[in-house]
Amino acid sequence: MSAVASPIRVSGLEKSYKDLHLLRGIDFDVAGGSIFALLGSNGAGKTTVVKILSTLLSADAGTASVSGFDVAAQPAQVRGSISLTGQFAAVDEVLSGRENLVLIARLRHLSDPGGIADDLLRRFSLTDAGGRKVSTYSGGMRRRLDIAMSLIGHPPVIFLDEPTTGLDPEARIEVWQAVKELAVQGTTILLTTQYLEEAEHLADRIAVLHQGHIIANGTLAELKQLLPPAQVEYVEKQPTLEDVFLAIIGVDTATDTPSGPTRKDSR
């Protein structure tokens, strides 16, 4: 199948549950090989969007396509072109990391499942832990393994539904790095999150979902332009608790975390 310029297209999407109108006609496109963040508070409808796009839920109105396939009319083709990682790692804790990967490769009827597993363990820095049971993994390791499992079969589109929920700061950084590497390799990623710094750190474009509507959609720079000009006051930056925590455990915040503002400037 040839590459699609916008592997994800959503137009006029609506979804209600009785009197609860979750989606009220939302529109957005996601460019190929980019990270698109759908940002919103709990209950805003982010997971509902992902469920519709992954054919797990039907929309009440509107259209959506993934990898050029209509989600309503061609659900099998959509499912064959995507992978979905939910809020909790879908891994078998009784099996080792490598056995989890081999199992998925076999279920997909791929040749050389062992080689596929070893390659993914290397890509996600899990080789040394590959032979251990997943029950011994940290939260960040489990999430990285979960994302690695979602790559088996080389899906061009991946949905990450709040992938860092419940993770500590160090584990969150591990996941961020894995997600960025996927986009560099050409995977199209739709990321849902309620964490502002996560969207700022990862996304090429950000859409804000609020009360059933996309109320803003653009790059971080474009969204900042929506604010009125503010008086600039230069102040000394004080470290946050996260800065202190990461410094104590030896993580280089200058390269691995989003830098905090050094001035009060809304632009």
Results as ranks from 00 to 15, higher is better:
Val134Gln: 09
Leu182Gly: 02
Ser83Trp: 02
Leu167Pro: 00
Gly140Thr: 07
Arg144Ala: 00
Tyr137Lys: 10
Ala61Val: 05
Leu107Thr: 03
Arg142Gln: 13
Arg142Ser: 05
Tyr195Pro: 00
Arg123Pro: 02
Thr63Lys: 15
Phe159Leu: 00
Gly115Cys: 09
Ala73Asp: 14
Leu182Tyr: 01
Pro169Phe: 14
Met141Phe: 09
Gly68Lys: 09
Leu190Lys: 10
Phe124Arg: 04
Val157Asn: 06
Glu181Met: 13
Ala148Asp: 01
Gln77Gly: 03
Gly130Lys: 01
Glu174Lys: 13
Thr63Gln: 15
His109Gln: 14
Met149Arg: 15
Leu95Met: 12
Trp176Leu: 09
Ser111Ala: 15
Leu110Lys: 11
Asp128Ile: 11
Gly166Glu: 08
Gly97Thr: 05
Leu110Asn: 10
Gly131Asn: 13
Asp70Leu: 13
Ile147His: 01
Leu95Asp: 04
Met149Thr: 10
Ala129Met: 13
Phe88Tyr: 15
Thr192Asp: 07
Leu167Ala: 02
Arg79Gly: 02
Arg108Val: 01
Arg79Met: 04
Ala73Val: 07
Arg142Gly: 11
Met141Ala: 13
Arg142Asp: 09
Leu107Pro: 02
Leu84Asn: 00
Leu151Glu: 01
Ser65Arg: 13
Pro163Cys: 10
Leu145His: 03
Leu110Asp: 09
Asp92Gln: 03
Ile82Met: 08
Trp176Cys: 11
Ala171Phe: 04
Asp146Asn: 11
Val78Glu: 07
Gly97Phe: 06
Gly139Leu: 11
Phe124Leu: 05
Leu167Thr: 00
Ala148Pro: 00
Leu126Pro: 04
Val157Gly: 05
Val134Glu: 09
Ala76Thr: 13
Arg98Phe: 03
Glu181Phe: 02
His109Ser: 13
Gly114Glu: 14
Gly166Trp: 08
Thr164Leu: 09
Glu181Thr: 11
Asp70Met: 08
Ala72Lys: 13
Arg142Trp: 05
Val66Gly: 12
Val134Pro: 06
Pro75Phe: 10
Asp146Glu: 09
Arg144Asn: 03
Ser125Ile: 04
Tyr195Lys: 07
Ser125Phe: 03
Ile82Arg: 02
Ala64Val: 06
Thr192Met: 11
Ile82Pro: 04
Asp168Lys: 07
Leu120Phe: 01
Thr192Lys: 07
Pro113Met: 06
Val157Pro: 02
Trp176His: 14
Leu107Val: 09
Gly80Arg: 12
Val102Pro: 00
Thr193Gln: 05
Gln185Asp: 15
Val71Ile: 13
Leu110Phe: 11
Arg106Trp: 00
Val134Ser: 11
Thr136Leu: 14
Asp128Gln: 14
Glu170His: 14
Leu110Glu: 06
Leu190Glu: 07
Leu182Phe: 02
Gly139Pro: 11
Ala90Lys: 04
Glu99Tyr: 01
Leu107Glu: 11
Gly86Trp: 08
Gly68Ala: 12
Gln87Lys: 06
Ile82Gln: 06
Thr63Gly: 08
Ile147Arg: 00
Gly68Pro: 02
Val175Ile: 08
Arg123Glu: 12
Val157Ala: 13
Gln185Trp: 08
Leu120Met: 04
Val157Trp: 07
Leu84Ala: 01
Leu190Phe: 08
Ala183Lys: 06
Arg108Thr: 03
Glu99Asp: 14
Leu121Pro: 02
Val157Thr: 12
Leu103Asp: 10
Thr188His: 08
Asp119Met: 07
Leu191Gln: 02
Val157Met: 12
Arg142Val: 06
Ile189Val: 15
Pro155Tyr: 05
Ala117Arg: 01
Gly68Met: 06
Ala183Val: 10
Leu190Pro: 08
